[in-house]
Lab assay of single mutants.
Amino acid sequence: MSGIALSRLAQERKAWRKDHPFGFVAVPTKNPDGTMNLMNWECAIPGKKGTPWEGGLFKLRMLFKDDYPSSPPKCKFEPPLFHPNVYPSGTVCLSILEEDKDWRPAITIKQILLGIQELLNEPNIQDPAQAEAYTIYCQNRVEYEKRVRAQAKKFAPS
């Protein structure tokens, strides 16, 4: 494992614990031996107030490669969400998460999670990743928002 990646992720964890947006979660997972795995984080993004996503808490896994922060983490909703920019596998399609697009090593975990929260309610229809959600979003916004509200209710924190 890269010392650069681990040191950056340790800084990220410290900064997150000191200050993070209300309702968001970002925690490194534990290895079988109980030690912390900084390369694999369990996160959760709350649906934004005043949107059909409100009330939901959407679980996301963030996986970092050894060359982080040169390369972005892979962000994957578990379980996958109904959304035009979420692949059926759950992987998020967002330009700041793509090395050859808008990724920059200075982007923080907090910025990534806030960017994904923004994307939930403002899909990028130029870059669809899920045919069904994309089609319904474009053709029947009322039905799309109904499905999103049902999903938010399903993923409401207990």
Rank of each mutant, 00 (worst) to 15 (best):
G3H: 08
G3S: 04
G3D: 14
L6H: 08
S7P: 14
S7C: 10
R8L: 15
R8K: 00
L9M: 04
L9S: 00
L9N: 12
A10I: 06
A10G: 09
Q11N: 09
Q11G: 08
E12S: 04
E12F: 02
E12T: 01
R13G: 03
K14V: 09
W16H: 04
W16G: 02
W16S: 05
W16A: 05
R17I: 01
R17W: 04
K18C: 09
D19P: 05
D19N: 07
H20I: 05
P21H: 05
F22L: 06
G23C: 00
G23Q: 00
G23N: 11
G23K: 08
F24E: 08
F24L: 06
V25K: 09
V25T: 07
A26L: 09
V27Y: 10
V27R: 14
V27K: 13
P28F: 06
P28S: 06
P28M: 05
P28V: 06
P28G: 15
T29G: 12
T29K: 14
T29R: 14
K30P: 09
K30S: 11
K30E: 07
N31V: 06
N31L: 14
D33F: 01
D33A: 02
D33L: 04
G34Y: 04
G34C: 08
T35C: 01
T35N: 02
T35Q: 04
M36F: 06
M36L: 14
M36P: 02
N37S: 14
N37T: 12
L38K: 00
L38Y: 14
M39A: 07
W41K: 06
W41Y: 02
E42Y: 12
E42W: 08
A44N: 08
A44E: 13
A44T: 09
A44D: 07
P46H: 07
G47N: 02
G47L: 01
G47Y: 10
K48S: 03
K48F: 11
K48L: 13
K48G: 02
K48D: 03
K49Y: 09
K49L: 06
K49W: 08
K49A: 03
G50I: 05
G50N: 15
T51A: 04
T51G: 07
T51S: 11
T51P: 02
P52Q: 11
P52V: 08
E54T: 10
E54V: 07
E54D: 06
G55A: 10
G55S: 10
G56W: 01
G56V: 00
L57H: 15
L57G: 06
F58S: 04
F58V: 09
K59Q: 11
K59Y: 10
L60V: 09
L60P: 05
L60H: 05
R61L: 11
R61V: 10
R61C: 11
M62K: 05
M62Q: 04
L63P: 05
F64D: 05
K65L: 14
K65E: 15
K65T: 14
K65R: 13
D66C: 13
D66I: 10
D66Y: 08
Y68P: 03
S70D: 05
S71E: 15
S71L: 07
P72F: 00
P73F: 03
P73V: 14
P73H: 02
P73G: 00
K74Q: 14
K74W: 02
K74V: 15
K74R: 14
C75H: 04
C75R: 07
F77M: 04
F77G: 00
F77T: 03
E78N: 14
P79F: 12
P79R: 15
P79A: 15
P79S: 14
P80E: 11
P80F: 12
P80T: 12
L81S: 03
L81G: 04
H83M: 02
H83R: 02
H83T: 15
N85R: 04
N85W: 03
N85T: 00
N85C: 04
V86P: 01
V86M: 12
V86A: 08
Y87Q: 05
Y87I: 08
Y87E: 03
P88E: 15
G90F: 02
T91I: 14
V92L: 08
V92D: 07
C93P: 00
C93A: 05
C93Q: 06
L94F: 10
L94A: 04
S95F: 00
S95H: 00
S95A: 04
I96E: 00
I96W: 03
I96T: 15
L97E: 05
L97P: 11
L97Q: 05
E98N: 15
E98F: 08
E99C: 13
E99P: 12
E99I: 02
D100S: 15
D100N: 14
K101E: 11
K101T: 13
D102Q: 00
W103P: 00
R104S: 10
R104M: 01
R104E: 06
P105K: 00
A106T: 10
A106W: 01
T108Y: 15
T108A: 15
I109M: 11
I109N: 03
I109D: 03
I109H: 04
K110T: 06
K110F: 04
K110A: 04
Q111R: 15
I112K: 08
I112H: 12
L113H: 03
L113M: 11
G115C: 06
G115E: 02
G115T: 00
I116W: 02
Q117S: 11
E118R: 11
E118Q: 09
L119D: 04
L120D: 02
L120K: 03
L120W: 06
N121P: 13
N121A: 12
N121S: 12
E122L: 10
P123H: 01
P123M: 01
N124Q: 00
N124V: 03
N124F: 08
I125Q: 07
I125S: 08
I125P: 07
Q126T: 13
Q126R: 14
Q126G: 11
D127L: 00
D127G: 13
P128I: 05
P128L: 01
P128M: 03
A129S: 05
A129G: 03
A129C: 04
Q130A: 12
A131I: 04
A131Q: 15
E132F: 06
E132K: 07
A133E: 01
A133M: 02
A133L: 07
A133D: 03
A133P: 11
Y134Q: 05
I136Y: 11
I136Q: 11
I136F: 13
Y137H: 04
C138P: 00
Q139E: 13
Q139T: 12
Q139M: 12
Q139D: 13
N140I: 04
N140S: 13
N140W: 01
R141Y: 10
R141V: 10
V142N: 15
V142K: 15
V142F: 14
E143L: 10
E143R: 06
Y144F: 05
E145Y: 12
E145L: 14
E145G: 08
E145C: 08
K146V: 13
K146S: 15
K146C: 11
R147Y: 08
R147Q: 12
V148F: 01
R149S: 10
A150I: 14
A150K: 11
A150W: 09
Q151F: 05
Q151M: 02
Q151S: 06
K153N: 14
K153T: 08
K154W: 06
K154I: 08
K154V: 13
K154R: 12
F155P: 02
A156I: 08
A156M: 09
A156K: 05
P157F: 12
P157M: 07
S158E: 05
S158K: 08
